[in-house]
């Protein structure tokens, strides 16, 4: 495959990952009392499947679409205001986490434990930035911000990390075949 085809393919896949993030912000799977929102799962998958650079690009394109007012954020909202709103920290966190997860897992060459570790680190980064920003914007105490902005989701996130590791395993061959990358694992 020539370089321009490869680039177009990666661009289209990144846009698709970004579209999936938007969809993940709307749909939730009803599991138990708290529905699981799929957005951060999709962010992690974008990074695992496309790697650090294109994972980061996916998230940035997603954020850009939201910034220009397209309704891609949770609840169908968009606009620059979201970035300075209470949940803006998570959005920035997604970008950094995608880059970290993608870069680490590329180094791990598909090792499932390294993937899981990468996602654990990424998730911590998302909450670190998200909760700090929440605290700054809403003027809550740190403990309060944590109990509102992180605690209720942690169990779900552990489940998502486990899920993402196995989902990525199932989908990687498909991507690798299309990008003509020699197969790992």
């Amino acid at each position: 495959m020539d370089a321009s085809t490869r680039k177009l393919r990666l661009m289209v896949y990144s846009s698709i990952m970004a579209s999936l993030m938007a969809v993940g912000a709307y749909i939730a799977i009803p599991v138990g009392p708290v529905p699981i929102v799929l957005q951060n799962l999709f962010v992690m998958l974008a990074a695992l499947l496309l790697g650090g650079r294109w994972g980061l690009i996916s998230v940035c394109v997603y954020l850009l679409a939201g910034a220009v007012g397209l309704p891609v954020f949770a609840g169908g909202t968009g606009g620059l205001g979201k970035f300075v709103g209470p949940t803006g920290g998570y959005l920035i966190g997604f970008a950094i986490a995608a880059w970290l997860i993608g870069t680490i897992s590329e180094k791990g060459r598909g090792n499932i434990f390294i993937d899981a570790a990468a996602m654990l680190i990424g998730t911590m980064v998302i909450y670190a930035i998200g909760v700090c920003w929440l605290k700054v914007v809403t003027d809550m105490s740190f403990a309060k911000a944590f109990s509102v902005g992180a605690l209720p989701f942690l169990l779900g996130d552990v489940i998502k990390i486990v899920a993402a590791a196995s989902i990525a395993r199932a989908l990687r061959p498909m991507i690798a075949e299309r990008l003509m990358v020699p197969r790992t694992t």
Partner: peptide
């Protein structure tokens, strides 16, 4: 729920990627 979420996500991604392939072809 883990099984359900896995299944759903894998199918969603597969179909989206195949759509993407068609789009790449159409654009090229």
């Amino acid at each position: 729920p883990l099984f359900r979420m896995n299944r759903f996500t894998i199918m969603l991604f597969r179909r989206a990627i195949i759509r993407g392939d068609d789009l790449v072809d159409a654009m090229q």
